[in-house]
Amino acid sequence: MTNEAPLIEVKNLKKYFGEKGGLFQRNVSVVKAVDDVSFQIHRGETFGLVGESGSGKSTIGKSILRLQSITEGEVLFDGKDVHKLSNAEMRNLRPKIQFIFQDPYSSLNPRIRVGDAIGEALLDHGLCEKHEVASKVKEVLEICGLSEYHMNRYPHEFSGGQRQRIGIARAIILQPEFIVADEPVSALDVSIQAQIINLFSKLQRDRNITFLFISHDLSVVEHLCSRIGVLYLGTMMELGSREQLYSNPLHPYTKALLSAVPIPDPTLKRERIILKGDIPNPANPPSGCKFHTRCPFATERCKVEVPEFKEVESGRFVACHLV
């Protein structure tokens, strides 16, 4: 990419959760939700994270924004270690880093008018005067495809797609440099999803915002992201550019994921890799390569030896003994 320093650097990030189990909630086991993950996000790019549910996508997103503590590792924003900032420094950083949720409804107060909900963060962060708020809210509503009259309405009066627009408006009104969007279109119907995807494209073009875009939908990620990381049970299996990953996936898991996506063409005959079995319990992940219990190419070595996450060509990393 560029020689410029990356905006986000995630270094050996680990996030473990203590999971209570058993009948009386006393057997404590540890879920390694994120287990030694490293990657960088360059300024102005949209980095995609894909993987099945429970693979650790949301945990990485929240860790980067320090919405939760981390177990080990570093997250650098513009060179500064986010998890080592003082409270005052963090307060300064907050408006620059925003989060967009899958279901914005759960993050909107049902009794607060949408205009106030979008504008309140501006005042909280002291980013503008009270009399300027309304015009700024109006401006972002328009960017997000809503109208001025929507300001006086309550969240329940909006459809799913409109609520997602509100969530986006609330994030961009602060003029952030970086946004984590966690499954922002997954709950939407196709016709509405396309509108919101185009809104993200527009924000990428017009505002030079850097995005971490989290999704389990590989076609949406291909559409919006220039570089992509593939997660499995808290471990990065492959990382590369969109072109590298989609036209020539190297890791068996990436191949299987891509071949599992249904394509809307009934005449297409594809060689399918149908994985056997389920995603293993994250509290008790397989030894060696975590994918070996489902990998069609697994050998004895894979059961015992953890494959190194190595750079196989410029900017492209794969964790597999075969590559």
Binding site: V190, A194, Y246
Partner: peptide, 24 residues
């Protein structure tokens, strides 16, 4: 027609997706 055009499809990336305006 609109539904089929609005859906992003793997390995058929376009710069902009077709959209159906409005909502149900």
């Amino acid at each position: 027609k609109g539904l089929l055009k609005a859906k992003p499809v793997i390995n058929q990336r376009q710069e902009e997706l077709y959209t159906i305006a409005g909502q149900v």
